Simulated assay, not measured.
Amino acid sequence: MKKYIIVIITLFAFKSFSQDVNLFFNKADAFFKANVAGGKVAYSKINSNKGALNDVLKLAETISVSKDDAKNYQAFWINAYNLSVIKGIIDHYPTKSPLDHAGFFDKTTHSLGGKKITLNAIEHELLRAQFNDARFHFVLVCGALGCPPLINKAYLPSTLNSQMDTQTKKALNGSFLKVNTKKKRVQASQIMTWYKEDFIMKGKTEIDFINKYRTEKIPDNFKLSYFPYDWNLNKQ
């Protein structure tokens, strides 16, 4: 009898978890669709009615995800990061930049996944340190124009890999690179020098990484440099 009771409790807990995390993904998806367009965020609109943002983040407080279920884990924390950046902006709204607020990324904590955690800890400890995937830099959006564009939907476990590929391709075929063919030069976002180690894994060069996702390939003999990051707010 005891064995059956344990099985029933385990199944009930799993069902409850599945419902909660799926509800989180659904609410996050609805929020992004309603408030993001062209990679930019309707902060003024959100500020006038904070209900949807507060609801989805309240739900995220107690959800527990395991890195053993990598897609579920990554999708949860990517969405939680992007939503918490928006919450941080709204907490200081109106503002011109997240950098105008000391500790925005490394001191301010957010209640997510049963933790009190900073944005930097989500990015560097829960994601980058656990998974060797440079594509995180193209889906974690820091609230600035220099960031990759924010998509107007949630990242979902079932579509995560294709979504990460799409956003990486969009960045590296768009604003993350400035190519001067005549001078044989390419300038990349400062993200690629701040986190250079992520882009040169397994003996690859930064150009190798870029060309994996870029339609018009960059020749190996092009000189690579970096342009300054634009920290102005990514507002509509």
Rank of each mutant, 00 (worst) to 15 (best):
A60P: 00
A60C: 01
E61W: 01
T62S: 15
S64G: 15
S64D: 13
S64I: 15
S66L: 10
S66N: 10
K67C: 10
D68S: 14
D68V: 01
D69N: 11
K71C: 08
N72M: 13
Y73K: 00
Y73D: 15
Y73Q: 13
Q74G: 02
Q74K: 11
Q74V: 13
A75E: 01
F76W: 10
F76R: 04
W77H: 09
N79I: 08
A80K: 04
A80I: 03
Y81I: 12
L83F: 15
S84L: 06
V85M: 13
I86Y: 07
K87G: 11
G88R: 11
D91C: 08
H92S: 11
Y93L: 08
P94T: 12
T95Y: 04
K96Y: 04
S97D: 06
S97E: 05
P98H: 04
L99G: 02
H101L: 08
A102C: 08
G103Y: 12
F104A: 04
F104C: 05
F104T: 07
D106G: 15
D106I: 07
D106E: 14
S111H: 07
L112E: 06
G113R: 05
G113Y: 11
G113P: 01
G113D: 10
K115M: 14
K116C: 07
I117H: 09
T118I: 03
L119G: 01
A121G: 04
I122H: 01
Q130N: 14
F131M: 09
D133V: 08
A134D: 04
A134S: 05
H137V: 12
H137F: 06
F138C: 14
F138T: 11
L140M: 09
V141K: 00
A144L: 02
G146N: 03
P149I: 08
L150Y: 08
I151E: 10
I151V: 15
N152S: 13
K153V: 09
K153W: 09
A154W: 05
Y155M: 07
Y155T: 02
L156T: 15
S158R: 14
T159R: 08
N161H: 10
N161P: 05
N161Q: 14
S162A: 12
S162R: 05
M164K: 04
T166R: 09
T168R: 01
T168D: 01
K170Y: 06
L172W: 00
N173R: 07
G174S: 13
S175G: 15
S175P: 01
